[in-house]
């Protein structure tokens, strides 16, 4: 059913730290690896060894140059489904294949009823949905619904593949509907924000902005020269001075 369910108390989602993301693509490849044999299987590729290789991926990592000159910075920017609270991708679906789960807010596509009309991808401002040309249906981030509730996995592995793969801890998974959760606390502390809030889709996923540059703290304002050390001319002092000279060679 493409009518949206009543807002759930539980809002599972991701918090992405743009300060620590290094753009290594580990989350994207790990996502592809898990999902090409999981809920979204297959995630088809086209012409993979040819001149125009492309395929369905559920997570894309951009890199942007932000600001000008000496104060500019590189920001790596992972982009995937934000599991919005009021997603138009769900309500435009003519078949009911696209739906939002009432119990945890995850937005999914039923691959057995999707007709591949692509209207949901038009309705998404975030480019989160990718059509699988070989499978004829729409693919999207499932928040690894087949991992997070998977009791055959060890408890520490019951997180989305992208979160598990991130080497810098830039991706956090949790319940953003619970104010006391670690992710909610993180969003509060770091002033996490929504992408394009003016669109009115109310994304659940949050982005943590890059921290302020630390140039001011690390670059000394005046060149400092250490004051000469006063010596008392003792034998121990001379021994250390000789050792220092010897080791400095």
């Amino acid at each position: 059913m493409t009518s949206l369910p009543a807002p759930s108390a539980k809002k599972l989602g991701l918090v992405i730290d743009l300060d620590t993301c290094v753009g290594c693509q580990a989350c994207a490849t790990s996502c592809k690896e898990w999902n090409t044999s999981g809920y979204s299987a297959p995630l088809s590729d086209h012409d993979p060894y040819g001149a125009d290789p492309h395929g369905a991926w559920l997570n894309r990592i951009h890199a942007y140059d932000v600001g000008e000159g000496a104060t500019s910075r590189t920001v790596h920017f992972p982009r995937s489904c934000l599991h919005c609270e009021t997603p138009a991708c769900v309500t435009v679906c003519p078949t009911g294949a696209s739906y939002k789960r009432a119990e945890d807010g995850i937005v999914l596509v039923n691959p057995d009823t999707c007709i591949g009309c692509k209207l949901c991808s038009w309705a998404c401002p975030y480019g989160a949905r990718e059509y699988d040309y070989a499978d004829g249906v729409m693919k999207k981030c499932t928040l690894c619904v087949d991992r997070i509730y998977n009791e055959t996995l060890d408890p520490q592995d019951r997180v989305p593949a992208c979160v598990k793969a991130c080497p810098t801890g830039a991706r956090h998974f949790g319940d953003l509907g619970d104010e006391s959760s670690a992710v909610s606390q993180l969003v509060k502390a770091r002033e996490g924000y929504d992408l394009m809030p003016e669109m009115g889709y109310k994304p659940v996923n949050k982005y943590l902005p890059p921290r302020p540059r630390r140039d001011a703290a690390t670059t000394p304002s005046t060149p400092s020269t250490a004051a000469p050390v006063k010596t008392d001319g003792s034998a121990t002092e001379k021994l250390f001075a000789w050792a220092d000279k010897l080791l400095s060679r």
């Binding site: 492309h54 395929g55 991926w57 951009h62 942007y64 910075r73 990718e130 929504d194 394009m196």
Partner: peptide, 24 residues
């Protein structure tokens, strides 16, 4: 506004996420 990074200055693409055009 799309990336939320406009507050730090002008946002320009540095590296694309993929070499060839994707579905989007």
């Amino acid at each position: 506004t799309a990336t939320g990074l406009g507050r730090f200055g002008r946002v320009r693409p540095l590296e694309a996420p993929h070499t060839q055009a994707n579905f989007v």
